[in-house]
Nucleic acid binder design. Structure first.
Lengths: 131, 131
DNA sequence: ACAAATGATACAAATATGGTATCATTTATT
DNA sequence: AATAAATGATACCATATTTGTATCATTTGT
């Protein structure tokens, strides 16, 4: 079981690299070189981060990407939510089926507590702290 | 992202039910009825738990399953390891590629800390505490 | 002998993840 | 104005994992 998937991993590395560029625009080719990531896959990730407002893109020749926010305002939790969906340790498979039953509630309750801790941690890890 | 998958969920419920049977042998049909789980899928799960020593099976007519250990000696962490594999929040996609690089180590280090906490929690939640 | 149970194992469907391919659009440069 | 270099959008495909299903062999109580 993984906490972060490959696309999040690429995203972290890309953002860390961009954080070191002082706002200079970097084209995908530059990031591909730096990260040795598959180019079309990386493009897809960057485009998503652009749409979500973490990156700012510039089209046309000389274009590329730069951070849209300060590195200490971008958190691992944000990236995971955007690229992997909400963290739901606690997704109940049995919905209304058992939920009157005490032991199920106990399981859910305990997993929920773990989830809350993990989310709070992930929301405290900034790109700046990883750079 | 899920912390426990459906088969683990079934396993928890099955073990909790068996824990209430005072060592009486319960056939799969009994558990299917109790859990409304797909019978062949549940059989597969129970057979795995038997092989791993958490359950004791009895073949033949009148056979079935019972707990092999006291409910306070079986932990959620065990079930997850058996049915979902080792918890590896920290599985590095980039192995030797970047590992000389400081920022990668920072990411891994932080995820490792979260992983350790989660594992310690999962290893503290017993079937008895969920019953 | 028979029926009721598990053991073992191969197969299949559904979903999630990782990645590719293509074409349209924008923009700097010439 | 033409061209080349970049992103935007989107459809598609490959692989792995999860969630099952199906079948036959084996064991055991009656």
């Amino acid at each position: 079981m993984k906490l972060i998937t490959r696309n999040t991993d690429y995203a972290v590395r890309a953002l860390c690299f961009l954080a070191k560029q002082d706002g200079r625009i970097v084209p995908v080719s530059g990031l591909v070189k730096e990260l040795r990531a598959p180019r079309p896959f990386l493009r897809k990730i960057l485009q998503i981060l652009n749409r979500k407002g973490l990156l700012k893109s510039c089209k046309g020749q000389g274009g590329g990407f730069r951070l849209a926010l300060a590195p200490d305002k971008i958190f691992l939790g944000d990236l995971i939510k955007i690229l992997q969906g909400p963290i739901q340790f606690n997704d109940c498979f049995f919905k209304k089926m058992f939920c009157a039953d005490l032991r199920i509630c106990l399981l859910r309750k305990k997993i929920n507590e773990i989830e809350k801790y993990v989310i709070s941690q992930l929301e405290s890890i900034s790109i700046a702290s990883l750079g």
